[in-house]
Design a protein around this nucleic acid. Structure first.
Lengths: 159, 159
DNA sequence: GCTCTCGTACTCGGATAATACGTGTCCGAGTAGCGAAGG
DNA sequence: CCTTCGCTACTCGGACACGTATTATCCGAGTACGAGAGC
């Protein structure tokens, strides 16, 4: 799994904590998390292309949530960063394993191996789709109530 | 996900279909599935190291199931090929995101992002662990009853 | 005819290259704010 | 003093290198079968 997924979730989480209309620049995020600015910027562009964040160009620009945090699922984030392709890809090698004279009717139904892997991946995707940024924020708040205030301070709010 | 996972499951499935004590060589599998022999051999070695198959050295050697097909889960196969490392790794970047003066008590509990991703991955792993090679075999048989016979013919059984 | 020995062919095992994707970086396009000049 | 113009600094956007992990390959160690010679 891409490193960028973790970064993206934390960035969205920070934006959810800030909860205002002032955009946050890549430089601010990079400084806050001590991450390579240029590469983090690449990930943020992916989030913008996927419509998860809105990008404000120009000076004093940056990124802000494109929709409420409870409307952004972790599945959205993973898809934005990793792409929509499934992790397991079936190449239908079963067709070559049975000899040339195997009846085509034997392959009408989905490959059983493919089906099994797909079921597992579906469980993963459903779990990701059932958890929103707002949920993660709520859990983090429950673990450490000071988190929201610390986040706002880290980005220059409430000086 | 590694290509080798698909190959490995199909190989184990074929061994389950054959269901005898005569080992099958890498060359036989590669010829049957039309796969690069040397690379497939590498994957089979991983299965052998993980204890899923038993390797018979020397002429007329090859591989056979190390235990019954209903005792080999898809999780075992994925772990053998991909390794035991979790797909998502938490680098605890939250600690850097809150400023230096953040109280350590705020990080006693697990990172919420990590927890959320872990839950999804656990669903995936549980689904993989709940499905055995025997289950996949049963499903494939249900889809196409001729599969077992075709497999035995492909490996020189029942000539 | 039987047995022992040697040779050959075959297969596993690990060490070794080539390639693709994830990682990291750079520079150009565009915008907002600030300052100075003019009215 | 107010308005307008221009400049500078800052930020997004996409195009360009690098490193690591997956993909792919090769050669050596070991074993079983078979042929041949010897008894």
């Amino acid at each position: 799994m891409n490193q960028g997924v973790e970064w993206a979730v934390h960035v969205l989480l920070s934006l959810a904590w800030l909860d205002d209309d002032r955009p946050v620049s890549t430089a601010a995020f990079a400084a806050s998390y001590d991450l390579p600015q240029a590469y983090l910027h690449k990930q943020l562009q992916a989030l913008a292309r996927a419509g998860l964040v809105e990008s404000i160009p120009g000076a004093r620009g940056g990124f802000l949530l494109a929709r409420p945090a409870d409307k952004i699922t972790l599945m959205d984030v993973v898809t934005a960063i990793e792409g929509p392709e499934p992790a397991f890809t079936c190449t239908e090698i079963r067709r070559r394993g049975m000899g040339e004279d195997a009846p085509k009717s034997a392959f009408r139904r989905t490959c059983a191996v493919h089906g099994a892997m797909q079921r597992a991946e579906l469980q993963w995707r459903q779990s990701l789709a059932s958890q929103t940024i707002a949920d993660v924020k709520a859990e983090a708040d429950a673990h450490a109530p000071s988190a929201a205030r610390l986040a706002r301070r880290a980005y220059g709010r409430e000086e």
